[in-house]
Amino acid sequence: MAKIKGAIVVDINGCKGCELCITACPTEVIFLSDDVNVKGYHYAYMANPDVCTGCSNCAIICPDGVITVYRKKIS
């Protein structure tokens, strides 16, 4: 069966830790880091990479456009 796998890359120092991507993600991939970035914000990261489908919801809701999305069909 074909399976879709995705991955995101967050521009850590551009993230403002608003958490909008976290609730936008249907598969609970994203969490905020314990660390802070150069601006002092906890930043978004892929905590559960295995369940990312590359749907881009997180990137579309991000006000700062700091999420890049990759997606591949694995047969």
Binding site: G6, S56, A59, G65, V66, T68, V69, Y70, K72
Partner: peptide, 8 residues
């Protein structure tokens, strides 16, 4: 080749 979304 797997890129689907990036900041314009």
């Amino acid at each position: 080749e797997n890129l689907v979304y990036q900041k314009t």
